[in-house]
Amino acid sequence: MSRRDELIAKYAEDLKSKMGVTPDMDLLTKVVIGCGPSIYNQDSETVAGSDPDELARVKNSYLVKKLGLADGPELMAAIKSVLEKYGTSNRNKFRPVIYYMLCTQFNKQSVYN
């Protein structure tokens, strides 16, 4: 099993156990691949939910640029909603898990086709 496959399995487990979602493994794999090399770095693999700059980065780089959503207050509300569901006490909020949840929340799976 490759390192990426191990990480995908870890993210799928987080989606199941912490988010209560059975992931579409094909979509999850594409989201992980879309994250690029950031998944191999412990710092960039996670999202700091209490850092406003990090949240703005998720909004601008992922939701606006990657998913093509119009900027607005609903984007930050969606990010905070996903982070809240992930658990405020959970220190390891994995970027691919958050991106997967945001992608499905905005019904933008077609971006990865």
Rank of each mutant, 00 (worst) to 15 (best):
L28T: 02
L28Q: 00
L28F: 00
L28N: 01
L28W: 00
L28M: 00
L28I: 00
L28C: 02
T29P: 02
T29G: 15
K30I: 01
K30V: 03
K30R: 09
K30S: 12
V32R: 02
V32G: 01
I33D: 10
I33R: 09
I33W: 08
G34W: 01
G34P: 04
G34F: 02
C35Y: 01
C35N: 04
C35L: 06
C35S: 04
G36I: 00
G36Y: 01
P37V: 09
P37Q: 07
P37A: 08
P37T: 10
P37I: 07
P37N: 08
P37D: 11
S38A: 14
S38I: 09
S38N: 13
S38M: 14
I39W: 03
I39P: 00
I39E: 01
I39Q: 03
I39T: 01
Y40W: 14
N41V: 08
N41F: 11
N41C: 05
N41Q: 09
Q42P: 04
Q42D: 14
Q42F: 09
D43L: 13
D43F: 13
S44F: 14
E45Q: 15
E45L: 12
E45K: 15
T46R: 15
T46I: 12
V47Y: 13
V47T: 08
V47G: 06
A48E: 11
A48C: 10
A48H: 13
G49Q: 03
S50A: 12
S50P: 10
D51H: 15
D51V: 11
D51F: 15
D51W: 11
P52H: 07
P52N: 07
P52S: 08
P52Y: 08
D53G: 06
D53Y: 14
D53M: 13
E54S: 11
L55I: 09
L55S: 05
L55P: 03
A56P: 07
A56S: 14
A56Q: 09
A56I: 11
R57E: 13
R57S: 15
R57W: 10
R57C: 13
R57P: 04
V58F: 07
V58D: 02
V58K: 01
K59C: 10
K59S: 15
K59W: 06
K59R: 12
K59Q: 11
K59F: 10
K59Y: 10
N60Q: 15
N60C: 07
S61R: 14
S61N: 15
S61F: 14
S61V: 10
S61D: 13
Y62F: 13
L63P: 00
L63Q: 01
V64C: 12
V64I: 09
V64L: 07
K65P: 05
K65Y: 06
K66L: 02
K66W: 00
K66E: 02
L67G: 04
L67N: 03
G68T: 03
G68I: 03
G68C: 05
L69D: 02
L69E: 01
A70F: 06
A70W: 03
A70L: 05
D71W: 05
D71P: 02
D71F: 04
D71Q: 06
G72I: 02
P73F: 06
P73I: 06
E74F: 11
E74A: 11
E74Q: 14
E74R: 12
E74W: 10
